[in-house]
Design a protein around this nucleic acid. Structure first.
Length: 646
RNA sequence: GGGGACGUAGCUCAGUUGGAUAGAGCGGUCGCCUCCUAAGCGACAGGCCGGCGGUUCAAAUCCGCCCGUCCCUACCA
């Protein structure tokens, strides 16, 4: 409703300005610094002052004179020329009594690719940031009525998988059958974590062993031999492990496009032809890139950079780089490749949602994937260079619109605080100890595994729950602890804006107080508790629309505190809309925290159930129920569930 | 060398397209559970918004230079 009034006021003032001065200008609105100034501030007069050569205050007065806007109670001129708008409180509250309108559904498809973890070891905290950001972006857009498809790209034929396959074969001396039984009998993603670190170190000490990598990659591509078999076993098992890890945080996918099919279905060959035909890449005949197909640097860098190197797309031995495959994949996402995958069912989530994986074998019914009009690639900022190359590929092929609709949804890495490294038993150099953070390294096995962190959070949450609710059955306490843990973790990853490096610290991640997920959950639980207590006393929630007249709302909302609280609670949709605009999930997290703070204030200031004035009590019950609904609706966009109790 | 990000309270971070007195959490000090759960609430302390210059009625925000930290700059992904 806030958003509606905001839009309406901006439009009305814009029309007014056009009438008065024949100037068409978008009218910006902002929030007054002080609540006493009203609900919306419009600084439009300042921009007009120069053009009209008049004092802003005079312009503001001209605009305001006789202007009436539905739902706006008063328009005031303040400061050097602000227009401050005050809502008609009763009008506003009456509008909030109506159930929220369903967001207008739009059919054009938006594709979000996230998670995208190499399937060769357990997921770590850096992967969690990616998946949580991506999943929250999806939830934000779906809440706004957009049609979103979630893709998780599986690089199951890449170097990292090859390394682990080679390690099992050559270092661990395991047959495919033995790997199969390891998968069945061990914590396989954790085992691979160590195996990958081991072979990475082995490669460093035995340079000639690196031929295993090339051999294995070759075998995988040909689909033959023990190497290929182990590689498939490893990547499939790890993908299942990753999906299970992410599901603990409520993260689901629609489709898993896999690199093996990009290879087998000749996606690259098709893209290669296109790129050659349209001159997007050229065969280098001299210099260090001789014999390679190269995209010129001018395609993806500023012209000023000039003589910079191009990017190799096809190596001199004829194999395609990762970026090349990524260009083919990006073309497919936009439906520009002229080819499609086949699909098979990969996994059915407990809630019934089906996730599909690509396959090269025709057959069976499957939904239609890909063919989006806008694509978000959630990938960390270190890969912005490669993402620029992918987008440049689209542009070079003449797909300007799709290039413009390719969004690299970038974010900074999750590193480890020096203190956390010490806690993990990692030896740090004197230099590293002075650094603000230490980078995670899969090759060194340095990092915090996602499932370990989640387990740790659950354990701590369970202690807290048990200390408060010892009488509840263990299974129930555990379920509550799991929700608190997931809420804490998701909020922790979302509270930072995207371009802030997170120096992961156990102390901060394990906190349940202050600006955290559990704080917001606690507010929602308390709101529910008031309503539950009401029922326990044999009462029911009144029909608020019948019980609260305009006059009653007018009386109750004359209380400034009540009005400010209601206003804060009503801004949920505006907050989400703003977060989509700015591409910043952290803004939703921040709003959730502010909403919870507002409710906590309400909770302390107004004892709802013991209120003796009947009208006020009904009003407070309505406020409670409204807060509850808004808290739940906001938390669900963050992917955070409300525990039964806390 | 080139490209990019960042520098705001002791610590971790917000700060909308330049706008009214720069905010939050943690940590610190002091209060508040006979009352819908204290994972909560209130109060206090804490700032040359890295530095210098410029643009403007107005700069933490835009521009230039400098200092500092980090990332990228592969025929790895």
């Amino acid at each position: 409703m806030f958003h509606t009034l905001e839009t309406r006021a901006a439009a009305a003032i814009g029309a007014r300005i056009k009438d008065l001065y024949q100037i068409e200008t978008p009218v910006l609105t902002e929030q007054p610094k002080q609540s006493g100034f009203g609900e919306i501030a419009v600084p439009a007069a300042f921009a007009l002052a120069r053009e009209l050569k008049k004092a802003p205050r005079i312009i503001a007065a001209e605009i305001a004179k006789g202007l009436e806007i539905e739902g706006i109670g008063a328009i005031e001129i303040a400061g050097n020329g602000y227009l401050n708008l005050r809502f008609d409180r009763a009008y506003y509250a009456a509008a909030l009594l109506d159930p929220p309108a369903a967001p207008r559904a739009r059919q054009e498809k938006i594709i979000v690719e996230h998670t995208n973890i190499n399937p060769n070891k357990a997921a770590h905290i850096g992967h969690l940031r990616n998946a949580i950001l991506g999943d929250t972006l999806v939830r934000m857009m779906r809440a706004a009525g957009l049609n979103v498809e979630v893709q998780n790209y599986i690089d199951n034929t890449g170097v990292q998988v090859a390394d682990v396959a080679a390690a099992f074969l050559h270092l661990e001396k395991k047959s495919p059958a033995e790997v199969r039984s390891l998968i069945a009998q061990t914590r396989f993603d954790y085992l691979c974590w160590d195996v990958y670190a081991r072979i990475s170190q082995y490669y460093e000490e035995n340079a000639d062993a690196k031929k295993w990598r090339a051999e294995t990659l070759h075998a995988i591509e040909a689909g033959r031999g023990a190497e290929a078999e182990i590689a498939h076993l490893v990547s499939d098992a790890i993908v299942h492990a990753h999906l299970a890890t992410m599901y603990r945080l409520g993260i689901e996918y629609d489709v898993l496009p896999r690199e093996s099919e990009i290879l087998h279905l000749q996606f690259w060959a098709t893209a290669f032809e296109l790129l050659k035909q349209r001159g997007a890449i050229y065969l280098e005949t001299e210099g260090k890139n001789q014999g390679c197909w190269v995209m010129p640097g001018s395609a993806f860098r500023d012209a000023e950079a000039g003589e910079e190197d191009g990017k190799v797309i096809v190596r001199s031995n004829g194999t395609v780089t990762y970026v090349g495959k990524d260009i083919a994949y990006q073309l497919w996402k936009f439906g520009l490749l002229g080819k499609d995958f086949y699909y098979r069912k990969w996994h059915t989530y407990p809630d019934g949602h089906q996730v599909w994986a690509s396959t090269d074998e025709p057959g069976g019914e499957a939904p239609h994937f890909g063919g989006g009009s806008r694509v978000y690639n959630v990938i960390d900022s270190r890969q912005s260079y490669l993402q620029d190359v992918v987008t440049a590929g689209l542009r070079a092929l003449g797909y300007q619109e799709q290039a413009a609709n390719s969004v690299h949804f970038s974010y900074e890495m999750v590193a480890l605080s020096p203190r956390t490294c010490v806690e993990l038993g990692v030896e740090l150099s004197e230099e590293d100890k002075r650094r603000p953070y230490v980078e995670v390294s899969g090759r060194k096995g340095l990092g915090v595994k996602a499932d370990d962190l989640i387990d740790k959070l659950i354990e701590k949450a369970l202690e807290e729950v048990t200390s408060r609710h010892a009488a509840e059955p263990e299974a129930s306490r555990r379920r509550v602890a799991e929700r608190i843990a997931a809420g804490a973790l998701r909020y922790f990853m979302l509270k930072y804006t995207r371009n802030s490096v997170i120096a992961f610290d156990f102390g901060e991640a394990l906190s349940f107080e202050g600006e955290t997920g559990p704080y917001v959950q606690y507010a929602a639980v308390r709101a529910r508790n008031i309503l539950r207590k009401l029922e326990e006393r044999g009462e029911r929630l009144p029909d608020f629309r019948a019980a609260l007249s305009r006059q009653a709302m007018q009386r109750q909302l004359a209380n400034e505190d009540c009005w400010q609280l209601l206003l804060a609670a009503s801004k949920r949709d505006a907050a989400i809309e703003g977060a989509i605009q700015s591409g910043e999930p952290a803004h939703v997290a921040r709003y959730a925290f502010q909403l919870a703070q507002a409710f906590s204030n309400f909770y302390h200031e107004f004892p709802v159930l013991s209120e003796s004035n009947a009208e006020k009590r009904t009003f407070l019950l309505w406020m409670t129920d409204y807060f509850r609904a808004q808290l739940e609706r906001t938390l669900s966009v963050l992917g955070i569930e409300v525990p039964e109790y806390m």
